[in-house]
Write a protein that binds this DNA or RNA. Structure first.
Lengths: 320, 320
DNA sequence: CCTGCTATTGTCAATATTGACATTTTGGAT
DNA sequence: ATCCAAAATGTCAATATTGACAATAGCAGG
C-alpha cells in the first residue's frame, strides 16, 4: 500500500506523529514476524519546501503531492482548535493549493483519508459533497453549517464513503491509521494496536469522556442529576425511571446507546468518582466513606475501587 | 508549573507530541476560558545541540537539562520497541549523559516523570531503586530482570512514588501529561482530555486490548474459549461456571477485575465480533446471522451492534 | 509455630439486565 | 393527507448481577 501523508504548515503534532508511527510500527512488526503483508510505502509531502509542525518541529519532506493511483493521500489535522483560527487558516495560500491538490489527487485515482480538522480541508475541496463524513466532535456544528452538502455523521468515529475516509477528534488519527493498516492486514492492525494503544485499564481520561457524553442526552443528564443526588441511598432503577419520566427499559436502552453502560454501572462510576474525591480531600477512611456512597461497609467499596480503577485505595492516595 | 521535556535523539514521535500538545492545549484552554490556573512553562531540552525524532523530525531545543527546583523533568520514550535495539541505545553516550543529568536534576530538587521506554532511562539512573514504578506492558519482564531493585507494578497505568512518576505503553504519555495537568488544575485536565482524547465510542483498537487482557488470566481465557464455542446457543452463566471450574460469583469477579465487564457483557462483545465478521465475509443478512450468535431475530442483533459499535449494519458494511 | 489480618471464594437473596414481543410514534415517500 | 416501514417505547419473564456475609486460605510478623 502506497501512502502519502500531507503535512501542512502548522500541522497538529500528535496527529501527524500517530499516523507515521502506526505505519512504521506496522512495517517493523511485519518484518519481525515475517507476516505476509506488503509493506506500507510511506512518504511525507507538503505544499511548500519547508514545513513546521504546530510545535515548531521541522518535517523532512519527500516532494510534492502525487499519490499513486489506487494509493492513499492522508490529511492530518492542522493545529488550530477554534474557529477564529481555523477559518483564516483555510484561506492561507498553501492550504488553498492543497485543496486543489486534493482534487487533482482524486482525479488521478487516489483515495483520500482525513482526520479531525483535516476533514475541513477535505470538505473545502468539494470532494465530500454528496458523501458521508465525520469530524471532530466540537466542530461538528461549524462543519455542518459550512458544508451543508456533506452528509455529516458525527456519531461515528470513522466513516468511509466511496474513496474517502474521515475520522474524528485528535486520536481519531490513530484510529484512521489503524483502519488503513487493517485494510492490508487485520492481523497486523491488531498487533500494531497492542503496541501503540494505551491499556484498557481505566485511565483518568476515560471518565471525563463519559461525562461529556452524558450531557449530550437529556434523559441521561436527568439520570445523572438524580444519581448524584442520591449516591448515599444506593441504587434503585424504579426510582431512577420515575425521576427521568421514562420506563426502566427505555432508560437502560438510552444509557446503553449513549454511554455503553447499564444504569447501575454508570451509578457505580459516579460512586467511584465521589469516593475517590472524598479519599483525597476529606481524610476519611474507606469504611467512613462507604455509607456516603451507598455501601454498608468499606470492603465492598475497596473491591469496587480496585475493579474500576485498577488500583487499591493506598495507591489512590499515593497518586495524589 | 515549570516543566522541561527531555528529547533524546530518536525520541518516540507520538509520545513527545502527545506530551507537548497536552500542555499547549492546557495553556490555550486556560487562557480562552480565563481559568485561574497558572500557565505551564514548557521547554524542550536535549543532550546534544541537535535532536531528530525517530521519524526524522528536527526538534528545536531551548538549552540544557536544568529543571527548576520543584519543577518537572519529563522523559518520553525512545523509538525503540524491541530489546535488541533498546539495550544498545541505553549505552549511547548521549543517553549515558542523560542518565547523569537525571541524577543531577533530582539532586537539584526537580520531580521526574517518564513514560513507556523512557522508564528504562530513568531506571538506569538508579533513582527508581527502592521506589515503585510501571512501564510498558510488553517490556515489563525485561524491566523486572534488569532493574530488580525497582518495585514494578505493571498492572497500573501510572505510578507515583515520591518525586518520581512512571507511565505505561505509548499513549501512556498522554495519561502522564494529563496527570501532570491535573495536579495544577483538575478542571483544566478534564477540558484538555475532552479535546484530545478519542471519543469513548468503541474504536477498533478497544476490542484488541480486551483480547490481550483476556489471555492474561487462565480463568478468563477458559471462559472465552467456552464462550466462543457456544455463541449460537446463547449465554448461560451456570454452564460457563461449570466450564471454567469456579463459582458463578468468582467468574463474575474475575471478569470484572481483568476486563471491567460482566460475563454477559463480554459474551456480547464476542457475539458482536463474530457478527461483524460474518456480515463482512459471508454476505448473510442480520436475520440470518442472528441465530448464529444466539439471537432469535435480527432486530435484537441490530440494536446490539448499534449500541456496541456506535453504527448501524449498513455503515458497518460500508466501512469495509 | 502461632496469631492476626487480609484476600479470595462460595452462598444467598434482592434487584438489575436482557431478550422477545407488542404497541406507539416518527419520518419519508407518494 | 395517507401509507408504510423503521425506530422508539413499554411490558414481561427468565436469567444475570451485585451487595452482604460467612468460611477458608494465604501471608506476614512475633
Amino acid at each position: 500500500m502506497k501512502l502519502q501523508v500531507l503535512a501542512l504548515d502548522g500541522v497538529f503534532d500528535t496527529g501527524l506523529s500517530a499516523i507515521l508511527d502506526v505505519f512504521t510500527t506496522a512495517n517493523e512488526l511485519a518484518a519481525m514476524l515475517s507476516l505476509n503483508a506488503p509493506p506500507f510505502e510511506l512518504s511525507v509531502v507538503g505544499m511548500r519546501k519547508k514545513v513546521l509542525t504546530a510545535q515548531g518541529f521541522s518535517v523532512p519532506l519527500s516532494g510534492g503531492v502525487r499519490p499513486a493511483e489506487g494509493g492513499w493521500l492522508v490529511v492530518p489535522a492542522l493545529g488550530y482548535k477554534v474557529p477564529d483560527l481555523l477559518l483564516p487558516a483555510l484561506e492561507r495560500p498553501d492550504v488553498r493549493d492543497a485543496i486543489v491538490a486534493l482534487r487533482q489527487a482524486r482525479g488521478g485515482g487516489a483515495n483520500i483519508a482525513a482526520a479531525c480538522i483535516g476533514t475541513f480541508v477535505l470538505a473545502e475541496s468539494g470532494l465530500l459533497d454528496g458523501q458521508k463524513a465525520t469530524t471532530t466532535w466540537w466542530l461538528a456544528p461549524l462543519f455542518r453549517q459550512r458544508y451543508p452538502a456533506v452528509g455529516l455523521e458525527d456519531g461515528s468515529m470513522l466513516v468511509k464513503s466511496g474513496p474517502l475516509v474521515t475520522a474524528g477528534a485528535a486520536l481519531g488519527h490513530l484510529d484512521m491509521a489503524l483502519w488503513l493498516v487493517r485494510q492490508a492486514s487485520p492481523e497486523l492492525a491488531g498487533l500494531v494496536a497492542r503496541y501503540l494503544i494505551v491499556d484498557s485499564r481505566p485511565a483518568q481520561s476515560a471518565y471525563v469522556i463519559s461525562d461529556h457524553l452524558a450531557h449530550a442526552d437529556p434523559l441521561v443528564e436527568k439520570f445523572e442529576r438524580w444519581a448524584r443526588g442520591r449516591l448515599s441511598e444506593g441504587f434503585s432503577l424504579d426510582h431512577a425511571a420515575d425521576a427521568v419520566g421514562a420506563s426502566k427499559r427505555t432508560l437502560a436502552r438510552r444509557l446503553g446507546q449513549v454511554l455503553g453502560k447499564t444504569p447501575l454501572s454508570y451509578f457505580q462510576d459516579l460512586r467511584v468518582e465521589r469516593a475517590v474525591h472524598l479519599l483525597k480531600t476529606s481524610g476519611k477512611t474507606p469504611d467512613e466513606i462507604a455509607p456516603l456512597v451507598g455501601y454498608a461497609d468499606g470492603v465492598t467499596l475497596r473491591a469496587l475501587l480496585r475493579q474500576k480503577l485498577g488500583r487499591g485505595v493506598r495507591e489512590l492516595r499515593m497518586v495524589e
